[in-house]
Computed example of a mutant assay.
Amino acid sequence: MKSAFLSDRGVIKVGGEDARHFLNGLVTTNIELVRPGLGRFGALLTPQGKIIADFLVTEIPAGHGGGFLLDCPKSLAQPLTARLSIYKLRAKVVIENLSDSLGVLAVWDGQPQMTPDLAFADPRDNELGWRILVPAELAEKAAAAIGATMTSEADYEAHRIACGAPRGGVDFGYNDAFPHDANMDRLHGVDFDKGCYIGQEVVSRMQHRGTARNRIVRVGIDGDVASGTTVMAGEKTVGTFGSSAGGHGLALLRVDRVNDAIESGLAVTAEGHALTFVAPQDIALPKKAVT
């Protein structure tokens, strides 16, 4: 079993007696279902339905003060703290950026021998493993306690890419991508049955009308290609290449254009390197969009 402390991840605490109701009215996931030891994947959106920040969220046990912890990109921790604070109004909540004192240990390729406090299975995909929220100076001790070997962030990055889990700011742009673009609907990041949240109407319409055309797709590639490289099919732009490691990559593609290219026998390339599709179903057109 492997583990790595993720220096690019931060932690936000949302506490107070109104914390659950407050968060549930803002974000894409159902906070009513979050419990200590259980995590959910979600995002805060713009009113136009685009991702401001995505995160994993878990509940703090009552014995540790209660409230919720958001595992989010460290670069967005303070802006997200400020953004959430705008919505406080009269709600009895306290929002704090704890990134200087609390971080994220990722664990994969095995089952922890014991479950520490503030640990939860990654809700996006079983293959991604576990998350443990822990101070950086205690990461190695936590890894040893669960029977994991500490390894590098690069090892986890390769694992994330192979699992097809997008990383914001690399595989898609914040304030530019819809949840469907980043596969949040496929990674259990959007609850289509919960009540209202910011941007819900746009996201629900895309889901029920099958109008999502952009998807992050797992690809194979023989060569090194920089993130942000244009993906081409013949002379036509069909998307943008994201992160890659060990011959695996992620690319944000217009699936209708890619399907047209495949049907026409055109190679899909990035900087002249041909892309292969790890799971062809990833680029399948939405059923309701097919005429």
Rank of each mutant, 00 (worst) to 15 (best):
G173D: 11
A162G: 05
T269H: 12
M1N: 10
M150N: 02
G220D: 14
D117C: 11
P166C: 08
G272M: 00
D193N: 14
L250T: 01
A119H: 04
G10T: 07
H159N: 02
V34P: 15
S7G: 11
Q111S: 11
G65P: 12
V190I: 10
H273R: 13
G247K: 01
L56H: 14
D185Y: 00
P47C: 05
V203Y: 13
R257W: 01
V134T: 15
C163H: 03
D8T: 15
R215M: 00
V202K: 14
D155H: 09
A284F: 07
H159R: 01
D71H: 10
M206C: 06
S243G: 09
K13T: 07
I146W: 03
A251L: 02
I86F: 12
A289M: 14
M1Q: 09
D109V: 04
A143T: 07
G223F: 10
E201C: 04
L84S: 12
A154E: 10
W130V: 10
S264K: 13
D125P: 04
T81Q: 12
A182P: 12
A43G: 05
T46I: 06
G239Q: 02
G66P: 10
L45N: 10
V202C: 09
R124S: 13
G66L: 07
M1E: 03
Q111D: 10
E263D: 11
A4D: 07
G173Q: 13
K287Y: 11
Q78Y: 10
D191N: 15
F41P: 06
N24T: 10
L250W: 05
M150G: 06
A106W: 08
I60N: 02
A145K: 00
F41Y: 15
Y197M: 08
Y156K: 05
Y197G: 03
G103A: 05
K236G: 04
A77N: 08
T28P: 01
D256P: 04
D260M: 15
G147A: 11
H273M: 02
P47V: 05
V27R: 00
D109F: 10
G147V: 14
Y174I: 06
L118A: 00
Q200K: 06
L56E: 05
A53F: 07
G10R: 09
D185K: 01
Q48C: 03
S204A: 14
C196F: 11
R257A: 06
S99C: 02
L133Y: 08
A245C: 12
R20A: 15
Q113C: 12
G246L: 02
D181Q: 00
K74T: 05
F172I: 14
A154D: 12
T46V: 08
G65A: 09
R40Y: 07
R9D: 03
F192M: 04
T229H: 03
E59D: 06
I216H: 02
T58N: 07
